[in-house]
Design a protein around this nucleic acid. Structure first.
Lengths: 217, 217
DNA sequence: TTGACATTCAAGCGATCACTTGATTAGTTG
DNA sequence: CAACTAATCAAGTGATCGCTTGAATGTCAA
């Protein structure tokens, strides 16, 4: 009873999932899958790795229960297994930011000078008043997979040409994948360079989505 | 801007925390620290490992920001860094149970025949009515570090001799460290063998504590 | 200061991991 | 069927990990 071997086996089974969170590549894949399901090939290109290596990481995450796998013709599309996995990833990321100074430092190095941000509460209030334009600067497919209600999809690459679409006189709030995504930041810098009032949302679509579900429950 | 090297560095910094969740020994240590702070020596004995090895795991978790370290005379006492780490561990454990069949299987193998359980809501209701006796069967130090209000501390090893302390006619609800802790289960079996009405709580003190804080907020 | 004990360090080992390369399989299209 | 693409498998590599052993460090008490 309460044998050591069986206790170890139990914790090893849990550690199998823990291990999946122990590689930068896999976390990057999780972060992408948090936006929308994708094929191996798309993911490989997004993280700048070979297809073979990406496939192996995805299979490992699949074995760890973090992602689901569906064949689509000649491709295979991976997706997060569920919102519990998304929450787990966001919690890990948040705790890492809080507890590891190195993460903050690396984030700053990656994102560059960060634009002024708005939080969820403030944005909701402003949206109700109707005096802001919310812009989703992620790629179209990610917008299609889910977005803040009322936002317009203007991927960062199209921003410059489509400036005219944005009404003047209203502040623009840009958002993207999350706090570690450079798109919203860049969008704000470009908008300001073009003479617009602009800030970014301090979170991304996944966080917004989860908060929305909680409010509903 | 948005250079690959810097993006990789950012995710590697987060993965440094993720890696800490990738070893059965470390998870076992986390699970123990979720109950109460402990010294290296105590932890080493609890998980059946050498002091040196245990110390190394603890230092690794310390570097990953998961645990704090305080000297106490000739000993060093480790503790979880905060409730965010506790929540992270519970979330990982929960998701592992949900997503990995192997975890469920291993849990069953470790715990043996599981006793009938009561959930949080039901226990709260019964406690308000006052027709149950709640027993904390963890070691005294863990009880001292925090426990369900109104519970009595009767460590599992003392249960047999102290049966008389428990009033007859009221159902006994036993709880311990959590769903993967064998103590409550065993307590229920022994109590029933002694002719008492008994069930176990389906969670442990850490889960109860977090729920309590949420209710307060 | 000396002795005792708890912890950490340092070196070494076998095992596992991340990535590469090249072959193989699965599904689609001509 | 053959040609093509996407994904996976298999084997090999250097690097890292987990554990052991034995020495070094830090703290207290005599």
């Amino acid at each position: 009873m309460s044998s050591r071997a069986e206790k170890t086996a139990l914790f090893e089974a849990i550690a199998a999932m823990g291990k999946a969170f122990g590689s930068a590549r896999r976390l990057e894949l999780l972060d992408l899958l948090a936006q929308a399901p994708r094929t191996v090939d798309e993911l490989a290109r997004a993280i700048g790795q070979s297809t073979a290596n990406t496939s192996q990481h995805l299979l490992a995450m699949h074995a760890a229960g973090l992602v689901g796998r569906r064949r689509e013709g000649t491709s295979v599309r991976y997706a997060l297994s569920g919102d519990d996995v998304l929450e787990l990833w966001l919690a890990l990321r948040q705790t890492a930011v809080t507890r590891l100074a190195e993460v903050e430092r690396a984030a700053q190095a990656y994102l560059g000078e960060d634009a002024e941000a708005v939080d969820r509460e403030e944005l909701l209030k402003r949206m109700r008043r109707g005096d802001v334009v919310v812009v989703d600067v992620r790629p179209h497919e990610e917008f299609a997979a889910g977005h803040i209600e009322g936002a317009r999809s203007i991927p960062i690459h199209e921003l410059e040409q489509r400036l005219a679409e944005l009404p003047e006189g209203r502040e623009v709030i840009a958002y993207c994948r999350g706090p570690f995504c450079a798109y919203a930041n860049e969008a704000v810098h470009r908008l300001r360079a073009a003479g617009r009032e602009a800030r970014r949302l301090d979170e991304g679509w996944p966080e917004w989505k989860l908060a929305l579900q909680e409010r509903a429950a």
